[in-house]
Simulated assay, not measured.
Amino acid sequence: MNTILSPLYYAVSWIIIRFHDLYSLVFNEDSGWAWGLSIVSLVIVVRIALIPLFFKQIKSTRNMQALQPKMKKIQERYKNDKQRQSEEMMKLYRETGTNPLSSCLPILAQSPFFIALFQVLNHIANNDKVGVLTADQVTSAREATIFGAPIAARFLDSADKLAELGASLTDVRVVTVVMIVLMSASQFFTQRQLMTKNVDLTVKTPFMNQQKMLMYIFPVMFAVFGINFPVGVLIYWLTTNVWTLGQQMYVITRNPTPGSVAFQQRQERLRKKGKLKEDPAEVEAKKAAEAARATRTQPKRQSKSQRQAGGTHPQGKPESGQPSAEQPKKAQPRQQPKQRPKKSQPGKPKSPNSKK
């Protein structure tokens, strides 16, 4: 392993030395700030070099989103056969050239640099030369401290070993615990931001389950293995997590995945600013609806006498139970009005034929 990664030892140590020379113009060359900022600058160089890979990751994520409808159909078709469902999913991935684990590519690409930095700091802790570092530079880096914790110190180091580095056990453990917590928290929020804002949660797929699993596994892994990392490696990984969080936030805000919460929020912002361009599909749907309304026949209006005479429906059809205009109404027998009896006038005798 050392033989394979030895070129990386030289590359990592050379980058650190160049930035250390730069920061020594501002800080003491033996201070932890000069060496710590050199490690931070190493992260920035590595992440800039990985930007093309990051865009490839975004493209692969877009492909995964485009496959969601097909994946949902596979789930519904083979919902009772999980093995067949997984086989069809993998077949779909192969046919479309999509990698469901593409979100792990930046981490995997950084692994060689991470291992190389880890080994460089191990050599510094053991006061051994490594890469392009001279003996004086190794001693300077070995004794440099950040908040009282040497860059080469670990959480599990004994008090005697830390005393050789001129540090106390309490200072080292407090600093390492704080950095491990920050490192795990930044990793968790980075993955959570992706899951809650930039993924369509209405469709449940194996890809979604993998992302959700990674959201909880990675922080636990960092917390467990972080106790074995030197302070310098913790600085490296905390910096790269913060970089990833900010880079991902920028992409989600400016170019979110269609159908995600971030996409809806962006559409709403553009709508308020009057910059939202209508979707061509929505425009076509509106035109079709307007054409359908224009070609629809409107019912003819009838006068009141026509409605009373014919009893027809507004569209010309007779109502149920009503005779049409062509069928005459049946003649109804005319009722004679009842006659009111005449009042007898006083002083006149009643007629003999009148009823008593």
Rank of each mutant, 00 (worst) to 15 (best):
V130H: 09
P337S: 13
K59G: 09
L133R: 07
M179H: 01
R271C: 02
F155S: 13
Y78W: 14
L22A: 15
I51Y: 14
E143P: 00
D157H: 14
D30I: 00
G259N: 09
A223F: 14
P106G: 13
L37E: 08
R154E: 13
V203E: 06
L92N: 01
K348Q: 11
T3K: 10
E29C: 03
F55D: 12
T202I: 01
K338P: 10
M1E: 03
H123F: 08
Q210D: 02
R94W: 04
F225I: 13
K277M: 04
V132P: 00
P346T: 06
A66P: 03
M90A: 06
K273T: 02
E278S: 09
E88F: 09
A141I: 07
P323Y: 03
E143T: 13
Q65P: 00
K56I: 05
M215H: 03
P150M: 14
A152H: 07
T244A: 15
A144T: 02
M179W: 08
A223E: 07
T196S: 05
A149V: 07
V12G: 04
K343N: 07
Q302F: 05
Q332Y: 02
L42N: 07
K342W: 02
T295C: 04
N127L: 09
K355M: 11
I180G: 04
C104V: 11
M1A: 12
G36V: 06
Y10F: 05
G316C: 02
R77N: 13
G232L: 14
R192K: 13
A159G: 02
S140K: 10
F118T: 11
V138P: 08
Q119L: 06
T98P: 05
Q85R: 14
A149M: 04
T170Y: 04
V40L: 12
L92Y: 01
S102P: 01
G274C: 08
V172S: 09
R266F: 01
R192W: 10
D81S: 11
M249N: 13
I151F: 12
N198K: 02
N353P: 00
G226T: 09
W14S: 06
E290S: 12
A153E: 10
S102R: 00
M215A: 14
S38N: 07
G316K: 01
